[in-house]
């Protein structure tokens, strides 16, 4: 349990003169939920994009599962088990819910240079896809086009896709964004049992959620790590309070 699955070492990304990430250093222990919080513009989404590989970092290193992945493209990191979800829902809108999950499963079954057999009739994709939809409570909508789903359902589907890839680590960028109270609760119930199997880096605005779920929390302010510590420590830290109250 003690070894870190993800190590971030002085990671930096500048947009022009502005350093969106300024020498980020922290590590995430295997099997834990690690919260990443900070006021607006602290660089949380930039950090996630750098970790997932969508943004190339200017300097610094990222080590994942014992390998240096700093120069790996997105798809290679994803195949190695580092998956992300998006703050703004990102799905395959013309496919059905089941198609979406099946695509996630397909990506884990080696290459897709299979040109002949109908993928929609492939039981090795469809049966597990149904199971995962059931797990997130979307069984009734398996055949609905994604466009017809409500926002909360789309968020659940997104989580289903990420789970379908059987990741070893999840980068969750505000998974509860735009959700109602009951949907948020449901999402929390979905995430909690994963703890131990799947390591999670959780970016979330809702402090209650973060403090309820996270084992460790890193606070970002203006692209820098202010502090990393246990929830209680963070809650009572004077500088964190000041950062959130704005007189920083």
């Amino acid at each position: 349990m003690a070894d870190p699955i993800l190590e971030v070492i002085s990671l930096t990304k500048c947009f022009g003169a502005i350093a969106a990430s300024d020498g980020l250093t922290f590590s995430v222990k295997r099997g834990t939920i690690h919260g990443l919080i900070g006021p607006n513009g602290a660089g949380k989404s930039t950090a996630i994009a750098q970790l997932s590989g969508e943004l190339q970092s200017d300097t610094g290193r990222v080590r994942f599962d014992g390998q240096d992945v700093t120069r790996w493209p997105v798809d290679k990191r994803a195949r190695s088990g580092l998956q992300r979800s998006y703050q703004i829902t990102s799905l395959l809108p013309e496919f059905t819910a089941e198609d979406n999950v099946a695509m996630a499963i397909q990506s884990q079954q080696g290459h897709s240079f299979r040109f002949w057999d109908n993928a929609r009739k492939d039981h090795s994709l469809r049966i597990p896809a149904r199971k995962i939809l059931e797990r997130v409570g979307l069984s009734d909508f398996a055949d609905s086009p994604v466009m017809d789903l409500a926002h909360g359902q789309q968020r659940q589907l997104e989580l289903a896709m990420v789970l379908a890839t059987a990741p070893s680590m999840l980068l969750l960028d505000e998974p509860m964004a735009g959700m109602g109270q009951s949907e948020s609760l449901r999402m929390m119930e979905l995430l909690r049992p994963l703890k131990g199997d799947v390591t999670m880096l959780l970016v979330e605005h809702d402090m209650d959620v973060v403090f309820a779920l996270a084992d460790m929390i890193t606070v970002l302010v203006k692209g820098q790590v202010l502090i990393t510590g246990a929830p209680d420590e963070i809650k009572n830290h004077p500088e964190v309070r000041r950062a959130y109250l704005g007189d920083y």
């Binding site: 997932s52 969508e54 493209p73 997105v74 798809d75 290679k76 994803a78 195949r79 998956q83 992300r84 998006y86 990102s90 799905l91 395959l92 809108p93 013309e94 496919f95 695509m103 996630a104 990506s107 884990q108 897709s112 896709m161 890839t165």
Partner: peptide, 15 residues
Amino acid sequence: RGCRQNEVRMKALGY
């Protein structure tokens, strides 16, 4: 077809 709909997502899925 997934690439046409959302290439970023397809990459994130590992394709």
